[in-house]
Design a protein around this nucleic acid. Structure first.
Length: 944
RNA sequence: GCGGGGGUAGCGAAGUGGUCAAACGCGACAGACUCAAGAUCUGUUCCCUUAGUGGGUUCGAGGGUUCGAAUCCCUUCCCCCGCACCA
């Protein structure tokens, strides 16, 4: 911090009042040798450059000194609040372009909202627990605390250098005890509510992380942190959060998230994976065991010819009881081999399905038929009941399996057009049809049979309607050190005992042995060995820590009240800010963080801690930053270091380029020329403040410039508001270009500077430092960054003035009128013969007509949505009215058009209206000739 | 297979019924300045024509609706992303 201030002070002097170009030292280089000349040229180029980095440092220091970006207390501020938030970073120690993009976007919006009178909450913090710190600890034998703090400092320094307008007083870091204490507190609350629980089961294990993973953290069977590492399956006792309890609400509320990208909503829906169906209960023959299966196709239940259960199904051992030893071993061998195979191997599409007969039979409650039970690798223990009823005639997977093992195929749904022959079927018939071989349901349409059969099963006590989800409970425990300790103690007598609230936080101990392998926390004796909070006897502390996604599931609430020592956050303060109005981050969190945070918000709501159902109203997912068509990555060597760009061009240039190059959601291709162009634009804006030869009188361009100014304000404001910054910047460029040429034409002084000032403010969110600098040079008090946003006046937007700017007004107006006329008759061409021998020709295009007066627009309005034929007559009357005040035309020539018989009547109208000659000709050439002959030296109009 | 998003001038990228041959930027070309290069400024940049506020053909392809389509509808091709042996 101090270092930044000092640097700013040093540069302050360098900068002040010297933003404009300096002349090159050409003369000095003349006598020098070749290399020296080149050097000198390079140097002079350098000296010509605007030093935008120095400008930035100067203003960053001032902003900080005056704390102008401090959020007002929401309980006393009269302003409306606006909560703008970027996904907080993991402090890996350096900023990459993706960060720069993310923060630039958020900062522009925060600044825009602030200038528009909102009390903006725009905070920054660090998601500072996690494996990289621990790995660094192992590698460098350093404490993860130290590594993390150093990185936070590093990344914060870079963020400040970008000029981001965070309220730094709200900074938080999840690895600080005053933060993670509340993770523990929430854990206890969820435990009380039954929303946190511990159970044993098959879990994903990453051998690289040496810890378990949540389902969401397994991508294509690999660890999300280690894309090379296949996840293993292990049977372990772990802590879970009961996110499935909210599955329905999480799914239903995706409908409310209209401010989210469609694909994120879809991804969440897919992930939750709700499907409606029926659970059917089967009795196992010669046993008192029953088995349940979930199906979405109860209509095919009469066609069951076998079932398969997953290798991990808990009932298998009991099913094997009493079977011949040989059979038992055969099945166990199959199960063992299946479990050994990797997740990928087992779940890849198109894999051949394998199975083994279990030696048992079950009974179809609907038919009384017996069918064999199989164990198969295509049944997933994690989905449904872990058992699939197989109807090979109507399910492709079952069909393939049945064919492979010679199991029977029974058709129960018949297509309308033909009959299925089970012997000859090449594939399953999965479409709709009518039930056959289904007892009392024969002849029923299968869609209708679904409910009927479910009802029958229900009546028999052999089934029920059910909803099934793909979503699993969130596995939150991790066998790692650098995370929030789970606040639980295991006592031989009392069992699992929560740590009392008064003993929170359970702090991460120092002195863990990171070289030992396994969870370093287990090596800290004083941490593990505790007294039972309940009975006082020696007990063992839980050494698992929480998934870092717990940290990020509520940090947006902590920002609302970041220093509260008594509670995670003040409900009233949170109520003022929440939900987050605009959230910005990467698409990679489409299900992970965004789903967890939604769950957490709902759970906290049910704990009475917040009043909102959803945490994020609008979500913006960033596109990637690429270079040479590929994502920037170290391995490809196409990484552009933001620090280097900022050093060379200043933060404003970096921000401008990255905002201008693409719309936020789109991929952004890095371009060095684009950066140069952005820099040039900023220089151009600075140049507007150079000396101007202005007048106090009016100029002929004033109306045009004023109109341009107000158009730019209007459009840019709209575009900023709707997060289309690149388009907003285009409008600023247009305005700057207009002003640059206006400046050369002895502009009206007041108007010129009015426009320049507005431009500076409009530019301020994008290039805040330069705007401040120029704002100051213009002699304004106060900061541009917090000045009021410019407003436009529709009355001053004069498109005609804008259009007339480059034309000879009177002639043009007449020509346009003619065009309007011409349009009515749908001619191909209109030619205007002028008295001086000039001839103008036009295509009859509606755009020209629209360029006409507001009356012409009324004509179009009347025309819209209706066939011309019907309105032709009406239009014939309207158009002359428009022309009423036009200069008298001596003659109008019309050429005949097959489909335009109404020309004759029209011609008469025109003749009366304008008191001029109108003649209708067959062909263009003859018309032209006739015009010259009949009206020598006079203007005429030819409509062809 | 299911679901989502796209295909616009040499490139990036706006434009979702009418001032659209299509903003803005890059690149390219020409001119000014310069001994020259760079930087800067001006103009041009789909094709033809040009004295032009001219003509022609465009917005993946084909068809349709409309007075009018890059924009709406249908068909089709291609690309990207997510999920996927989910019973």
């Amino acid at each position: 911090m101090a270092a930044t201030k000092k640097a700013a002070a040093e540069t302050d002097e360098k900068v002040s009042g010297k933003v404009e170009k300096k002349t090159s030292g050409k003369a000095a280089t003349k006598a020098a040798g070749k290399t020296a000349v080149a050097d000198a040229h390079a140097e002079s180029r350098q000296r010509e450059r605007l030093d935008l980095k120095a400008v930035a440092l100067k203003w960053q220091a001032r902003w900080q000194k005056d704390a102008i970006f401090r959020t007002e207390d929401p309980l006393t501020s009269k302003k409306k609040t606006y909560y703008c938030l970027e996904m907080f970073p993991y402090p890996s120690g350096y900023l990459h372009m993706g960060h720069v993009r993310n923060y630039s976007l958020g900062d522009v919006y925060a600044r825009f909202k602030r200038m528009n009178g909102f009390n903006v909450l725009y905070p920054m913090g660090y998601d500072s627990f996690g494996l990289p710190a621990e790995n660094a600890a192992i590698k460098h034998r350093k404490d993860p605390h130290e590594w993390t703090e150093r990185n936070i400092h590093g990344i914060k320094t870079q963020q400040q250098l970008m000029g981001l307008s965070y309220d730094w007083s709200r900074k938080l870091a999840t690895s600080h005890p005053d933060y993670y204490k509340w993770n523990q507190w929430f854990f206890l609350k969820l435990l009380e509510k039954g929303l946190a629980y511990k159970r044993k089961g098959a879990v994903n294990w990453c051998p690289d992380c040496n810890t378990v993973l949540a389902n969401e953290q397994v991508v294509d069977g690999k660890c999300w942190r280690h894309p090379e590492t296949e996840v293993e399956s292990r049977d372990l006792e772990q802590w879970y959060f009961k996110i499935t309890q909210y599955a329905d609400e999480l799914l239903a509320d995706t409908e409310k998230l209209t401010g989210w990208p469609e694909r994120v909503r879809t991804m969440q829906r897919n992930w939750i994976g709700r499907s409606e169906g029926t659970i059917i209960t089967f009795k196992v023959k010669s046993s008192d065991l029953t088995l349940e299966t979930f199906t979405t196709r109860p209509d095919t239940a009469f066609g069951i010819t076998y079932t398969v259960i997953a290798a991990e199904h808990p009932a298998i051992e009991r099913l094997l009881e009493g079977l011949p030893k040989q059979k038992r071993e055969e099945v166990r061998k199959f199960i063992k081999e299946t479990k050994k195979r990797s997740v990928i191997d087992r779940t890849a599409e198109g894999k051949e399905k394998n199975g083994v007969f279990l030696g048992r039979w079950a009974i179809n409650p609907l038919t009384g038929e017996e069918f064999p039970l199989w164990v198969a690798d295509y049944a997933l223990a994690e989905y449904g009941t872990g058992m699939v009823m197989a109807v090979p005639a109507h399910d492709q997977r079952d069909f393939e399996f049945a064919k492979k093992y010679g199991l029977p195929i029974k058709v129960v749904i018949s297509p309308d057009a033909y009959t299925l022959n089970p012997e000859k079927m090449a594939r399953a018939y999965a479409e709709d049809g009518v039930l056959v071989n289904s007892g009392e349901f024969d002849g029923t349409k299968n869609q209708e049979a679904m409910d009927l059969i479910t009802a029958k099963l229900e009546k028999m006590g052999a089934g029920r309607k059910a909803v099934n989800y793909k979503l699993r409970d969130w596995l939150v425990s991790r066998q790692r050190y650098w995370g929030t300790p789970i606040p639980v103690v295991y006592c031989g007598k009392c069992g699992t005992v929560p740590v009392p609230e008064k003993d929170l936080p359970v702090k991460l101990p120092e002195g863990a042995d990171f070289q030992a392998g396994g969870n370093p926390l287990t090596t800290v004796k004083g941490f593990v060995d505790v007294q039972c909070p309940r009975c006082g006897k020696p007990a063992r502390r839980e050494t698992d820590t929480m998934d870092t996604f717990v940290d990020s599931s509520w940090y947006f609430l902590r920002y609302c009240d970041p220093h509260d020592a008594k509670q995670p956050f003040d409900k009233e303060a949170a109520g003022k800010f929440m939900p987050v109005d605009q959230y910005i981050g990467g698409i990679e969190h489409a299900v992970l963080h965004l789903l967890y945070a939604r769950f957490f918000t709902k759970a906290l709501r049910d704990l009475g801690l917040v009043d909102v159902d959803e945490p994020f109203t609008r979500l913006l997912t960033l596109g990637m930053v690429t270079k040479d068509g590929a994502k920037m990555s170290k391995s490809l060597g196409n990484v552009v270091d933001p620090g280097a760009i900022i050093d060379k061009y200043g933060p404003d240039t970096a921000r401008l380029f990255i905002l201008f190059a693409a719309l936020p959601e789109k991929e952004l291709e890095w371009s060095d020329q684009g950066v140069e162009a952005s820099y040039r634009f900023l220089c151009k804006v600075a140049g507007l403040l150079d000396d101007v030869d202005a007048t106090s009188g009016q100029t002929k361009h004033d109306a045009y410039v004023r109109s341009k100014l107000h158009t730019a304000i209007k459009r840019a404001t709209d575009e900023f508001d709707s997060f289309r910054f690149s388009v907003a910047i285009q409008h600023l460029m247009e305005l700057a270009n207009t002003l640059a040429s206006y400046k050369e034409q002895r502009p009206n002084r007041a108007l010129y500077y009015e426009a320049v000032d507005a431009l500076l403010l409009l530019l301020s969110p994008v290039a805040p430092h330069l705007s401040e600098e120029l704002w100051e040079r213009r002699g304004h008090e106060g900061y541009a960054s917090v000045a009021a946003w410019p407003t436009h006046d529709d009355k001053l937007i004069d498109e005609k003035a804008e259009a007339a700017y480059q034309a000879v007004e009177s002639l043009k107006a007449d020509i346009r009128t003619v065009l309007a006329l011409a349009k009515i008759g749908q001619p191909k061409r209109i030619t205007l013969f002028l008295a001086d021998g000039w001839k103008y020709s036009f295509a009859g295009r509606m755009k020209e007509l629209l360029a006409e007066t507001s009356d012409a627009k009324a004509v179009i309005a009347a025309l819209m949505g209706s066939p011309l034929k019907q309105h032709g007559q009406e239009l014939m009357k309207l158009v002359p009215a428009i022309m009423k005040d036009r200069s008298k035309l001596p003659a109008i020539l019309l050429t005949k058009h097959e489909e335009q018989a109404q020309y004759a009547a029209f011609a008469d109208d025109l003749a009366k209206e304008f008191g001029c000659a109108v003649s209708i000709e067959d062909a263009e050439k003859s018309a032209e000739q006739k015009a010259k002959q009949s009206f020598p030296g006079k203007p005429a109009i030819l409509v062809a």
